[in-house]
Write a protein that binds this DNA or RNA. Structure first.
Lengths: 139, 139
DNA sequence: TGGCAGTTGAGAATCATTGTCAAATCATCT
DNA sequence: AGATGATTTGACAATGATTCTCAACTGCCA
């Protein structure tokens, strides 16, 4: 990836086709505002009468994450969970119990991580920052 | 767990026995300064002539992590990796290639996360913050 | 020195995630 | 409409990490 994002002549053809399945996954995500596992999203689609293979759900989620349309993070059990998100770089405040999520931004943190990394000569940075807690509704 | 952490009269006996296996794991960790997977630690012990079951390595690492003597985090592949650590709360700057790690502290970040969480009414907080990059030695 | 709670290990069992590959779909060209 | 080649899908196998099971083993203290 990251190479021929092309749209030349031949090899062009954006490749990513908006199929029924992909739309189903996107729709399921759109109807949620908390992080869910691939299994849960798969089940959700089934419950709503849809039918999409689990493997396809994984593939679609991976593609969406790659495209920056959804965020993927690992809950405290190490399981991958997804959620649709805004474009800008941000982090999350996630309820450990119900999954309710708040997107938060921390420019200062971004600056801090860059500074620390630079200070130690690390390049090609990335970072993870998630806050877990119990939301007000879960007492 | 989380129940009878007791230390009364009878049931007392700190329970955790320093066995050959546990010492081997601790020793292996002591000889490292970067994050390693349970498998790697297991292999390392074997290479040094020791013999400890993989399940035991997992159990010991979990116990050490619980006791706060080692840090456990998930690398970008979602695999759990461990490393001996200092007592104080801190975060890590980890080389994506060789695993070289720098412990870093960020009082400001701690304050920020608390403030954000409080602001949204979240309680019983915890957070993860890891910085990944390529260390100077790995270009 | 015995007895027992705490431990261990080998292998089975889970479980999330990814790979395989033939069948189904699509977009486009005739 | 019909042919055609590329993409996508899905059922299922394959991986791989982590946990569970349970009989055998071992520190420890009386």
């Amino acid at each position: 990836m990251t190479s021929t994002e092309a749209q030349d002549d031949t090899a062009a053809r954006s490749t990513v086709r908006p199929t029924r399945q992909r739309r189903a996954v996107a729709a399921a995500l759109a109807g949620l505002d908390d992080f869910r596992s691939a299994q849960e999203i798969h089940d959700l689609i089934s419950q709503q009468g849809g039918s999409v293979g689990l493997a396809t759900v994984y593939r679609t989620l991976a593609a969406l994450a790659e495209a920056g349309e959804v965020d993927m993070l690992r809950n405290e059990d190490g399981e991958a969970v997804w959620r649709s998100c805004s474009d800008a770089h941000h982090h999350h405040l996630v309820c450990r119990t119900c999954g309710a999520t708040v997107e938060v931004e921390g420019p200062a943190v971004e600056r801090w991580t860059s500074a620390i990394a630079r200070e130690h000569g690390y390049a090609d940075l990335s970072h993870t920052l998630e806050i877990f807690g119990t939301c007000p509704r879960c007492v």
